[in-house]
Write a protein that binds this DNA or RNA. Structure first.
Lengths: 246, 246
DNA sequence: TTGGTTCAGTGGTTCGACCAATTATAGTAT
DNA sequence: ATACTATAATTGGTCGAACCACTGAACCAA
């Protein structure tokens, strides 16, 4: 109740080609379209969907960039094995589309974070610039945003301070997911206070270049948050719509 | 020298819109196009580039999926801050485009792998199915592929056995990069033998559900390989073309 | 069997037109 | 002068038809 702004609605901006992407993507992820399978020709797809060929092409361009299909000039369009691609954007689609997997994948993400984040916090303490420290202090000082947003910002700042670009990308992906599921943790007032303290402590440790302390602070806070989130999913394993298929 | 077949040529398939993507992407990554900046209208871009508007649109659709631009109906096209997106596909573009950053990012990737892989190996030992064990044994039995390919396959199999989908995606990304840079390590005959032994040992540990052993084997082998690769970059820090800008 | 040719199918690109959403502008009422 | 409204201009979204470039398969010739 306290403050669950939930930024209104995503709103599907119409955009026909997005609809086409969704349809094909779903069929691939559900396994209806097997890897290696050949899709109908663009002209046939356009006719089947009742849209213009150019619109189909725009959708296919996005699907190709996602790593779901491979387009071969003069040959055809083939379904790729999405498990063999390394596109996290696609993983996000899977998380948000199949509610049966969501809880499991969230747990997986938390596990990865529990392993990586403490080490990256230590790296941040070692590699931080003055600008990094200033950025973190500014975040904990601002009282405007929600605690959730500040938490995401702090983690992002730590990633930048660690000077590990791939980790920045992974962390950003994590944040994009946690922004939508973080309310599980931040709806509780005590948890919010605990986070604020964490923000101050980790900022002080990194600003003070104390690697071991930063690592320990991060490890402890994640152990706590993960336990809380785990309890939530244990209590309400599937509070979502029933009637889903396998 | 042993066996560098170099399968002739990949050949760039032209594809006009790919060229457009490259141009805009480069300008954004180089900072010539700042985040928030508005791009020319599609019609103007088409005229400037001397191509059709539909072609420009296909390029923009891919750039949007990459997370480099944001397209607003009736408004315009805006450059996004790519550091705030979580798209690893984009990271790959950065690795392959700016040779000045490549070595550093490779080191970053190795660091992440050194942290994650041992834990995931332990998780694989805990969660593996019979199918996972069989897959790994099949890989080490096949004598057809190169050691590099077998190494990538083993790591991929471990990731799948760990039952952590996000890690599968991250690992696949790693593999895509290491497939192009792995020769740094696998050109050496002794290293190749060492890898073969590692494949056997880690497979046995995971098949035997020995978590601690799997973790240790993975940690040890990565400590060795990373040291070798680090030596390479120390000896030949920039063996590439000179004259690059900052 | 080998190599070259033809041909149908498919993706790639182009042109021109119109629809839909946003923004800027001018105008009106208060 | 201000605030609201209607209009026009700008921009992305879709459409339709046509042609180019590449691929694969069938066919033919050496």
């Amino acid at each position: 109740m306290t403050s669950s702004p939930r930024p209104l609605v995503p709103i599907s901006k119409s955009r026909l080609h997005e609809e086409i992407i969704g349809q094909i993507q779903d069929r691939i992820i559900k396994g209806e379209l097997a890897p290696g399978e050949k899709l109908p020709a663009e002209r046939d797809l356009a006719q089947s969907l009742g849209v213009n060929r150019g619109t189909v092409r725009e959708a296919l361009k996005k699907l190709e960039m996602l790593g779901l299909v491979e387009i071969l000039h003069g040959d055809g369009i083939y379904v790729k094995n999405y498990l063999e691609c390394g596109n996290l954007e696609l993983l996000k689609s899977i998380i948000y589309s199949s509610s049966t997997m969501t809880a499991g994948i969230i747990k997986n993400l938390l596990e990865l974070r529990r392993i990586l984040a403490p080490e990256m916090a230590a790296a941040a303490a070692a590699n931080r610039s003055e600008e990094d420290a200033a950025r973190m202090k500014k975040i904990i000082a601002s009282d405007e945003q929600s605690v959730l947003e500040r938490d995401l910002a702090i983690h992002s700042a730590i990633a930048r301070a660690a000077k590990n670009l791939p980790y920045v990308f992974i962390l950003n992906f994590n944040n994009q997911v946690f922004r939508d599921f973080g309310h599980i943790y931040f709806d509780d007032a005590e948890n919010r206070e605990r986070s604020k303290k964490f923000h101050r402590d980790i900022t002080a440790a990194i600003a003070g270049r104390k690697q071991d302390e930063a690592r320990k602070i991060m490890r402890d806070v994640l152990a706590y948050t993960d336990r809380k989130i785990d309890e939530y999913y244990k209590i309400a394993p599937t509070k979502r719509r029933a009637g889903g298929n396998s």
